[in-house]
């Protein structure tokens, strides 16, 4: 701790080593959006209900609106911006396109991160497993079925990648 509300935090953000010096109790969502311009991380509710702000921390899915910088000290954070050049993103993207899983797009980055988190844990999930894993990511446009199908398509097309 450098001054009263400054805090030194080291973390990896989308592959870069970051030294964050600042208020340790700001919402991580704001830190990502405002300090690092990662606007693919969306705010849909600000209270952990919608998943629009979803990121991966050490490979696990978290809502960044409920986190503070001190919680990511020495951890690795992945947002859509750090994921979108990967092979696995490519597979997920093609699957979302094939299934028609994108409408207004506001939930989409969160859905993509949730898909990645799920497939890391379970490369071949069943429909019910997908539906229950994704239940923290709200979508008001699609009615979910096309998103669930997208995850199934990705799981098949990306066989061996996860």
């Amino acid at each position: 701790m450098n001054s009263e509300n400054e805090f030194s935090i080291l973390f990896n953000l989308n592959g870069d080593e970051i030294h964050y010096l600042g208020d340790p109790t700001r919402r991580l969502l704001n830190v990502l959006r405002e300090d690092y311009h990662l606007t693919g991380v969306k705010e849909g509710c600000g209270e952990g209900e919608c998943g629009a702000c979803a990121i991966l921390v050490d490979g696990h899915l978290y809502n960044s609106c409920l986190m503070m910088p001190y919680q990511i000290n020495h951890k690795s954070v992945l947002t859509i911006e750090g994921f979108r050049d990967s092979k696995r993103f490519e597979i997920i993207s093609r699957a979302f396109e094939a299934a028609g899983a994108v409408q207004c797009g506001f939930c989409t980055p969160g859905m993509v991160m949730a898909t990645e988190a799920l497939l890391r844990k379970n490369p071949h999930p069943l429909r019910d497993e997908i539906a229950s894993f994704m239940s923290g990511n709200l979508c008001r446009c699609t009615g979910y079925d096309m998103i669930i199908k997208a995850v199934m398509i990705a799981s098949e097309a990306g066989d061996g990648l996860w």
Partner: peptide
Amino acid sequence: DFDEKINGS
């Protein structure tokens, strides 16, 4: 608008 929506840009 698919590409810019899926990659969050």
